[in-house]
Simulated scan of single mutants.
Amino acid sequence: MPFKSLLWILSFSLLLVGCDKPEVKPPTVGVLTQTPTDNFEQVTPNNRLHFPKDHGEHPRFKTEWWYLTANLTAENGEQYGVQWTQFRVATGSHDQKGWGTPQVYMAHLVVSGRHGVKYAERFARGGIGQAGVQASPYRIWLDNWTWQSTGDTPFPGVLTFEDGAMAGELSVVNKGELVLHGDKGYSKKHPAEDRASYYFSAPFLQLQGTLVVDGETLKVSGEGWYDREWSSSMLSAEQQGWDWFSIHLDDGSALMAAQIRAKDKKAYSFGSRSWPDGRVIPLNSEEIYLTPISYSTIDGKVLPLKWRIDIPSQEIKLSVGVERKQQWLPFSFPYWEGAISVKGSHNGRGFMELTGY
């Protein structure tokens, strides 16, 4: 970890959790429920996303992230999961340079497979060259974890990383259109309150390259999913976490289904079904049924690791199983994240994320 100062880490954790309410929320959701201050920009339904500009960062908003998951297969048939995420959190909205910049970055890296689950977390202050986002040619980095493209979009690009017992170099090609979730990228997160994010995905990625795990070099290839999201106050005070699924179905379509859980209230669901040619069907809360079937205790957390997904309007009925149970990630943002497989009306593979437990 580049910053090993206990004071710095403690300060960062307090920033994420927030101190304006006596109730302590999980840090995963605490930063997203803070009341916007310092004139941060707000997500509005009348805004439209613009590319390639919106591949870059949005420093006038409180939080954002760049997120990649991949289900990969080695030449010997073994299955591997890869997750890379870079977060940006603003400590204030006033532009400053160098060490005074309000932008703080955090990155997560996870590789899972036969060797177990390898994970790492890094932090950096923006403005000093250690982390950032460059528009042209497109580049996002934190230390030696880098996504590099030759143009002004992320694709085609190459993700390279090295940390302890894991390393990789993966080329990423987009084989479909971008998916703008909700109303052309305006993604509601609450049934009544004005809570939302700007949210888009690239669900149809093809990856190939090498992973190095515990000194063993593996040639891998497979499918990936890329998410981009930013906001200044995405969740309400009553919302406690979310359950999120991204799935490549065997008919060539991609399914995103998620729910945000609220204390003593019905969860708010949202999602989409999309195809590489650009067809997208938004899915609202009344169409999506996410039902936990069984729970497991992992690292002291009771987690729903078997699910049923029912979307009658799409004739989708899926049973969800995880590839590995032991994927609770004890980061500053703690959560469960890992590869899944589905069967039922369709077969497929993907990823699941559980937060706020």
Rank of each mutant, 00 (worst) to 15 (best):
A167N: 07
G168I: 06
K301H: 12
P282D: 06
R122D: 13
Q103H: 11
N39W: 09
A202D: 07
K263S: 14
L178Y: 08
Q240A: 09
G30K: 06
T297A: 08
S269I: 04
F40C: 08
T101Q: 11
G300Q: 10
R139Y: 04
I298Y: 02
G81S: 13
P282W: 05
G100P: 00
R48C: 15
P26F: 05
V342C: 00
Q96G: 06
T160F: 01
N144T: 10
L255D: 01
Q34R: 13
V220G: 01
L290S: 04
N144D: 15
Q130Y: 12
I293T: 11
L305C: 01
G185P: 00
Q96N: 14
G129A: 11
G185T: 01
Q259C: 03
G98M: 12
G271H: 00
S233L: 06
G278L: 11
D163H: 09
Q103T: 03
P137C: 08
I247E: 00
H94S: 14
G356I: 05
Q42W: 05
G278D: 13
L218P: 00
S269F: 05
I298G: 02
G348I: 04
L305D: 02
W65P: 00
D277T: 09
R261Q: 09
N47S: 15
E216T: 14
H248Q: 13
V43I: 10
W225I: 04
G185F: 05
Q314N: 02
Y105G: 01
G56H: 08
V158S: 03
Y289D: 10
Y357K: 04
A165L: 13
A74K: 01
I309F: 00
T91V: 09
Y186R: 04
A237I: 09
L305F: 03
H346D: 04
D183K: 14
L32Y: 03
A74W: 02
G176M: 07
N71A: 13
K175Q: 15
S341F: 12
G278N: 10
V173N: 11
V24K: 15
T150L: 10
T291N: 12
G241Y: 05
L329A: 06
L180V: 07
L255Y: 03
D251P: 02
E193L: 15
